[in-house]
Design a protein around this nucleic acid. Structure first.
Lengths: 348, 348
DNA sequence: TTGAAAGCGCTAACAG
DNA sequence: CTGTTAGCGCTTTCAA
């Protein structure tokens, strides 16, 4: 049993109501306030949030459910959400589903039981479907993976356009047999695949997309087999940081040089993409904006529940590095201070 | 106002106590139970956790405070903690302090207010000090950074020994001017520095340690200046993954080849350390064991609060890769399927 | 400016 | 097996 407001009231010789008023900065005479503060300090009192939430019916809590916290994209978004939440006096309940629908369902139930004020969610494909059929009981904003669904507010990247940018770039560099590996558990993966396929066809090329579990291992395994086979591509697009890492590992394992044997481009401008080999060409997402936008959509809805669902579509930025520059002088590489030197520097 | 146990009771034609018993799998007649379940389903009832926690005085919550969730070490530990917690029917409150003592203090206060069952904590140096003076009100296990303190249970790496292993390895490879960059905000950083210094002196070498904020940028900046100056080392040890990344970036920026111009070794076997350049030599931490051990120490203490504090010291594993193998044939590299091919493959 | 008292949703005696 | 009831710690009328 821990120290309660009652103990403080006793010690200060006032009623619990007065202590409560002191805590909430209500109208209390200065000397009374002082006595109460003294008692609080002496006893080391801390309010019990469960009791407060029960009484006020206000959890002051934002739920954040992401698929994989190892993905720097989600750590950045999470940080943005957390900052905005704390500025508004709310706490954040962060949950990690690992792309597992069972865990996702469990966490959604938890959010319900915590009576969260609002939810920010990057759903799996399967969950996205369920969300349309069984709408959530509280305000929610979908991030990264919204699909077509118009039921919820959402903040997403223009995935089709970003995939098209990558294909276009590779095409201009002279690549034709361009393959792609895409995460199979998210709407985002599918959208990037669709954008890739459309862009390939528009250029008279044959798309060769592969849907995979979004993990390093799955990417490495699939690419190893692909590269060893007869239909090995000369360039590859990976739909997220984990698959991109898998592609690089597979290329190394099979002794394929990047970009001369295999050009590589992908999504997510993670730190390591800059230092590996000649640097990897990637689409950088406006992670900070995504988190910030998600929170403002959420707060808007909390203030005005009747609002029609809004979808915010942001654009990625293509950062060209050496991994896609086989045919041109390295000097053309943008956003890279010393592309060739950097690459050469890594060699014994 | 949401659906409560009272609504369910009404709908099912029973008392709230009976509903409560159904929820906790208490003794209830089969047909009554069925009626209650039907009512729960029909109403979409979900128990209110705040109320339950208030009543039972049992938060069923483990707090987890880490310094930086971007650090794969902490994501892995976090995952281990979460798994163990859920097996025990507890939830996890994950907080990220970003090495900021203010945030750390705030979260500690939050834990208190949430009345958490127990806490797992990777404290900053400053906090570690305070924890000795003002002991926490609830069971806590320190991970990664325990210092000397004997007040709490802890799970740590043998940091001195690990640093020594790295120095020894570099020494055997023929390096003599070995520098080191260490995180200044954690006991762990300091211990690794001490281990490094001791090991250098034992070999008659002059240690040259630099304490830095544990970030990529700080590492890159410090190393850039260091490498450009007259006292540039021929080998460098980085005390964590972020500083290691900074070192690699600085080397690239200045056109220093790894390992011929600069040998590099560090801590944390992150995915990217395997694919960058010739591969980086690192100390791999038993991340899974750390999380698991922390949770069992915590559960032990919950069952038996009188226990004397225990300290579990685990050993790291040295994974040798090309970044420290200047003088020997690459074939000697362990744990690497195709070291030279892999490295060569990255070059245009 | 302060206190008394009701009640948020739930569990756990206790009684039947 | 089931219902009645008290009370967890807090906020918030309503009176004084």
């Amino acid at each position: 049993m821990s120290i309660s407001i009652k103990d403080v009231a006793e010690k200060a010789g006032v009623s619990v109501a007065t202590v409560s008023r002191v805590l909430s900065e209500g109208p209390v005479r200065a000397d009374t306030k002082e006595r109460v503060h003294a008692a609080i300090k002496a006893l080391g009192y801390r309010p019990n949030l469960s009791a407060r939430r029960l009484r006020t019916q206000h959890a002051q809590t934002i739920g954040l459910i992401v698929s994989d916290i190892r993905n720097p994209f989600f750590t950045a978004v999470g940080r943005g959400v957390e900052d905005a939440a704390y500025r508004a006096g709310m706490r954040v309940l962060l949950c990690n589903t690992d792309e597992n629908v069972e865990r996702e369902r469990m966490y959604l139930r938890l959010m319900q039981e915590e009576r969260v004020t609002g939810l920010i969610l990057a759903p799996t494909l399967a969950m996205l479907d369920q969300l349309q059929k069984n709408p959530l009981q509280f305000p929610a904003v979908l991030i990264d993976r919204a699909g077509a669904g118009g039921l919820y507010d959402s903040v997403v990247l223009d995935n089709r356009e970003a995939a098209n940018t990558l294909v276009e770039h590779l095409f201009e560099e002279g690549y034709r047999r361009i393959g792609g590996v895409f995460g199979q558990t998210s709407a985002t993966g599918l959208e990037r695949r669709d954008g890739y396929c459309a862009s390939m066809k528009a250029r008279g090329l044959t798309p060769d997309p592969r849907l995979l579990p979004p993990t390093v291992d799955a990417g490495e395994k699939a690419m190893s087999e692909w590269l060893a086979g007869p239909d090995a591509p000369e360039a590859i697009i990976a739909s997220n940081g984990l698959l991109l890492m898998g592609v690089v590992k597979a290329a190394q394992r099979l002794g394929r040089a990047i970009p001369s044997d295999l050009a590589v481009a992908g999504f997510d401008n993670e730190d390591w993409t800059e230092v590996v080999g000649p640097g990897l060409t990637v689409i950088e997402q406006p992670v900070h904006d995504i988190g910030r936008n998600a929170m403002s959509l959420l707060f808007d809805r909390l203030q005005n529940p009747g609002l029609a669902p809004r979808k915010v579509v942001l654009s990625g930025r293509c950062i060209v590095r050496g991994s896609t520059l086989a045919s041109k002088p390295a000097a053309l590489a943008e956003n890279r201070s010393a592309p060739l030197t950097g690459a050469a520097a890594m060699n014994p």
